[in-house]
Amino acid sequence: MELKKRINWIQNEFAMLSIIILIVLLLMGVLNPLRFFRIYNLQSMAFQLPELGLLSLGMMVIMLTGGINLSLIASANLSGILMALVLNRLAPPETFTGTGSGIVLLVILVGLAAGIVVGLANGALVAYVGVSPILATLGMMTLLNGVNILITKGYVISGFPPAFQFIGNGKVLGIPFPMIIFALIAAAVGIAMKRTPYGLEVYMLGTNETATRYSAVNVPKVLMKSYVISGLLSATAAIVMISRFNSAKSDYGESYLLVTILAAILGGTNVYG
C-alpha cells in the first residue's frame, strides 16, 4: 500500500517536475554558489524564459486536442517580421526621437492579427478539410518559412523605439516585464483550460474525438479556437522576442521548436491528447 501511494505520487508530473527543478537548482547552487544565486543571474533567466514559455503554452493547447503545431515558430517569426516592418516604417531608427508609445499599440495589433490569420488557416485545414494536424502544420511551417525569407531576403530588421524595447527589456519593481506578461497569460490560459466549457471540450476532444462529436460538441469550432489561441500565443512570444533582441529575422528561435514540444510533454501533456 505504502509503496503504491508513493508511486502514484511520483507519477504526478507536477510533483515530479518540481523535484527535478529543485534538484537542478541545488546542483547548480552547490557547483557554483557565488554565481548562480545572484539576483542578476535569476533575472537573466527570467528574461529568457517567457518567450519559450509562451511558445510552449501555444504547443500545449494544440497537443491537448490531440494534435501538434509544427508551424508555431514560423508563425512567431512571421508576426515578428511584420511588426518589425511596421515599426521601421512608422518610426525609422535614424530619425525617430520620441518614445513611440502610440505606435507600439498598433504594432502589437499587427502581430496578433498575423497570429490569428495563421491560426485560422491551420484550423481550417485541420477542422474542415480534415488534414491531420502534423501534416497541415508541417506544410504551413515550410510555407511560412518561405514567406519570411521572401519578405526579409534573409536580412535582419532592427532598431525599435524605446517604448517597444521596454516590453522585452523593462523591469517593474525589479521583476522583468516579460516575466509578468508570461505569468498573466499562463494564468489566463490555465483558467481557460480548467474552468471554462471550452477547456473541457478541448480535453474531451483530445481523449476521444468520436465520442466528443456524439456529445453534440461542435468539434470544428473547438479546433478553430485552439489553433487561433495557439497563433495568438506565438504572436505574443514574437512580441517579447523581437523587443528583447531589438530585431527580427526569418530564422530566430528555430531551435525552439522541438524544445517547446518537450516542454509541453515534460509538463505532463500526453502526445495522444
Partner: peptide, 15 residues
Amino acid sequence: YWYDVVIGLVILLSV
C-alpha cells in the same frame, strides 16, 4: 527565396 513558399504550398495542396 521562393523555394520554401512553393514547396510549402505543394505539401499543403497534396495533403
